[in-house]
Amino acid sequence: MDQQDGVFNCFLADETETVAMGSKLSSCIHDGAVIFLHGDLGAGKTTLTRGVVQGFGHTGKVKSPTYTLVEPYELDSQNVYHFDLYRLADPEELEFMGIRDYFENNSVCLIEWPEKGAGMLAQADLEITMEYVDNARRITIMANSQSGKTIINKLKND
């Protein structure tokens, strides 16, 4: 684990640890957040998102919104929106779907392939990069705002 200010690193051995990390991350978010998820196909972005959504109390299935672009989870404790922009042809499409409405003050927006929505997305509080390391995954979480730093500090102290 890296103790650099505003950065959190660790290794995740498998899917169970990835879901657990997502759940742990959700317990550190109290005022909403915009989270960009980076990584190759199959790196664990959707699995991590499943942990976040379940951490906020969702009990059903968590699927990747590859074709719908967004999957909303309006929960008692939190509105969580999972975006997958992999198939987005033009960032302008996000304007037509009302992207700005999703970035409410208290919502959590998890965005896979955020580079595809350049210029249309709110600034990320956290940028998460997931990468393969042998049979495990390395996760790096970087803060881009004061809110992001607060979340990382909570994550480090849990």
Rank of each mutant, 00 (worst) to 15 (best):
M1W: 08
M1V: 08
D2V: 11
Q3N: 14
Q3D: 15
Q4S: 15
Q4E: 15
V7S: 06
V7Y: 07
F8N: 01
C10A: 05
F11A: 04
A13C: 06
A13H: 12
D14E: 07
T16H: 13
T16Q: 14
T16S: 14
T16E: 14
V19N: 01
G22Y: 08
G22W: 13
G22D: 10
S23H: 11
L25I: 12
S26H: 04
S27L: 09
S27E: 15
I29R: 00
D31N: 13
A33T: 02
V34G: 02
V34E: 09
F36A: 04
G39K: 05
D40G: 04
G42C: 07
G42R: 11
A43P: 03
K45S: 02
T47S: 12
T47M: 11
T47A: 09
T47W: 12
T47C: 15
L48Q: 03
L48C: 03
T49R: 05
G51F: 05
V52M: 13
Q54S: 11
T59F: 07
G60Q: 02
G60R: 04
K61D: 13
V62F: 08
V62Q: 02
P65K: 00
Y67N: 07
Y67L: 06
Y67S: 08
T68A: 12
L69W: 06
L69Y: 13
E71M: 06
Y73E: 00
Y73Q: 04
Y73H: 07
E74Y: 14
S77K: 13
Q78G: 00
N79G: 01
N79H: 14
V80S: 04
Y81V: 04
H82G: 10
F83E: 02
D84N: 10
Y86D: 04
Y86F: 15
Y86H: 14
R87H: 09
A89N: 14
D90K: 10
E93V: 03
F96N: 03
F96S: 02
F96V: 05
F96T: 00
G98Q: 10
G98C: 12
D101P: 06
Y102G: 07
F103V: 07
E104Q: 14
N106P: 07
S107G: 11
V108D: 09
C109T: 05
L110E: 10
L110Q: 06
L110F: 15
I111S: 02
I111Q: 04
E112N: 08
E112W: 07
W113A: 09
W113Y: 12
P114F: 00
E115C: 04
E115P: 10
K116I: 02
G117K: 01
G117L: 01
A118Q: 14
G119R: 01
Q123N: 15
D125G: 00
D125C: 03
D125K: 01
L126E: 01
E127I: 07
E127T: 05
E127N: 11
I128M: 08
T129I: 01
E131R: 07
E131V: 02
Y132E: 06
A136K: 13
R137A: 05
R138C: 06
I139P: 02
I139D: 03
T140I: 11
A143Q: 05
N144L: 09
S145L: 08
S145I: 03
S147H: 13
S147V: 03
K149P: 02
I152C: 06
I152W: 10
I152L: 05
K154I: 00
K154V: 01
K156H: 12
N157K: 09
D158L: 12
D158Y: 13
